[in-house]
Computed example of a mutant assay.
Amino acid sequence: MTGEHSSKQYDMDLETIRSKVLLMGGLVESHFHDAMSCFRTGNVEQAEAVILSDLEVNRLEVSLDDMCSHLIVKRQPAANDLRTVVATGKVITDLERIGDESTKIARIARDAHASKHNLAMFSGYETVRVLAHGVADMLHQALDAFARLDQTKAVQLIAQDAIVDNDFRSIMRNLITFMMEDPSTISSSLDALWVAKAIERIGDHAKNIAEHTIYIVEGRDIRHSDYVATKQEQQN
């Protein structure tokens, strides 16, 4: 009976952590959306709100890390259970870093507006708009795959990261061309480049979340492997 009670309590504790992780995920999703919105509009108040709200993301990271540590010490999970806790801790770290990247975008938007470059900034937004929409979808799908422990969705998501990387390189080449042809675009082009890089990094973290999900389900660390290509071949 004691073992059964302990197992139930562990499940309850882990579910509490997972719920808070998904809450944190929803928060960083919202911050990314708001950061891109103020980059488009130059809304300084919205940018300041995104920057300030990163403090809440940081507090959640610290709180959740502490909960994971206490769960390991108190319940001493083994095998699959320990794997789940460790992977969840890594998801928490990736979410916090997504929050950091969204804050970078908000700061760029705020500073560009203060420098009276908001018209040029709007064209910068158009440069990264498609990339931002694709990465926002990746992040949403990554959180959904983690919530459902959906291995198939996680594999599909990881494959999308190559598209994001190619789009980023294309944006970078175009912006370099703009700056070379018209030096007056250097300031706004650099803003767009830093934003594009932040978006690309958010895509990387979304991919990481998908990899952690596969680790929970299969117990396989698929980083730096041909796992996704193999899975795609099997599906075809």
Rank of each mutant, 00 (worst) to 15 (best):
S187Q: 12
F39R: 08
L27E: 15
T93D: 07
K197H: 10
D221Y: 12
N208D: 13
V91M: 07
A136Q: 15
C38S: 11
F178W: 14
N166P: 00
V57A: 10
D182H: 08
E218F: 04
G134P: 01
G26C: 04
D191G: 03
E15I: 07
Q160R: 13
L190Y: 11
D221K: 07
L95D: 09
A192G: 01
E29D: 13
A159T: 02
Y125V: 00
L64F: 11
V57D: 08
G25E: 13
L71Q: 08
K90V: 00
V57F: 10
A35E: 05
S170E: 15
H140Q: 12
G203R: 01
V128C: 04
L139A: 04
R201N: 04
F168W: 10
H5N: 03
A210H: 07
S7L: 15
E48H: 06
A210F: 00
I214S: 04
D204H: 11
Q234T: 09
K153N: 10
I186E: 07
I163V: 10
D137R: 09
M36W: 05
K197Y: 07
V135I: 11
L157R: 08
K104Y: 08
E45P: 00
I214M: 01
K207H: 02
T152D: 10
Q9Y: 11
N118Q: 14
G42Y: 05
